[in-house]
């Protein structure tokens, strides 16, 4: 398959949309905008996976797409919004690294992903290779988001968007068994649950979800940034 064929083009474009939404996650300043962007990414991921299912003739992928659409585009954003409402977290996101610097690092990470994936997969088809490169980029950008955000809730979103990249990679590879995908999804669900629990605990002990308050307890700084 190459450029100019419809199935290839659309798959490429949908994977690109998921990657673009990862960048948008890094660009947003407000919590509600971050959650909306994450929901959009879930929807784009569901479309990408469903298209892969059609292109590869693998009905199992439709199930994955359905799971992604219901969980990531609807349920998790709703839960996150409820969490925000409950904690009254209507403040803006405070990135540890500036927005511009974060985006520049993001471009570097995408270049790194392409440099790593393309030489390593010389035997595979062009579709799988570029899709893998984009999926790895989404994973790396999710990690970047976890690193550069101070609030627990945006770190959770970074983790979930990282998992979007894993699903995208799994959908691009032909013949991946459904069990692997389901177990990945279950693992991430557990992780998300733990992150939520962690956030609750943090809230209970510090009355805030701002992780910079924890720096004092790591013993790195004698003085806390805030009283």
């Amino acid at each position: 398959m190459g450029f100019g064929q419809l199935s290839y083009d659309v798959a490429h474009l949908l994977a690109g949309t998921v990657l673009l939404l990862s960048f948008l996650l890094l660009y947003q300043r407000r919590i509600s905008a971050v959650i909306s962007t994450f929901a959009a990414q879930g929807a784009a991921l569901a479309l990408a996976v469903a298209w892969q299912g059609w292109a590869q003739g693998a009905p199992g992928l439709y199930v994955t797409a359905l799971v992604a659409a219901t969980a990531k585009a609807v349920l998790i954003p709703l839960a996150l919004r409820a969490l925000v409402r409950r904690f009254g977290l209507h403040r803006s996101v405070e990135p540890a690294l500036g927005i511009g610097a974060g985006l520049i690092v993001g471009v570097g990470l995408v270049a790194l992903a392409i440099l790593v994936v393309l030489p390593a997969t010389t035997g595979a088809g062009a579709l799988a290779r570029e899709d893998l490169a984009m999926a790895l980029s989404v994973v790396l950008l999710g990690m970047l988001m976890m690193i550069t955000r101070r609030q627990a809730i945006s770190q959770v979103i970074g983790l979930l968007s990282l998992e979007n990249g894993l699903v995208l990679a799994a959908a691009g590879v032909r013949g991946l068994p459904l069990v692997v995908e389901l177990s990945t999804a279950a693992l991430v669900l557990v992780l998300a649950g733990m992150a939520g629990f962690f956030a609750f605990h943090l809230r209970a002990s510090f009355a805030s979800l701002d992780l910079s308050l924890l720096h004092r307890h790591r013993g790195e700084r004698a003085e806390a940034e805030r009283p």
Binding site: G100, V110, L118, P119
Partner: peptide
């Protein structure tokens, strides 16, 4: 506008690397 600049850069980098390594 810096985000727009970076998107254009990302597009160019993507194309450059993927055509160079394909």
């Amino acid at each position: 506008l810096g985000a727009a600049l970076l998107l254009a850069l990302l597009g160019a980098v993507f194309l450059f690397l993927s055509t160079g390594l394909a």
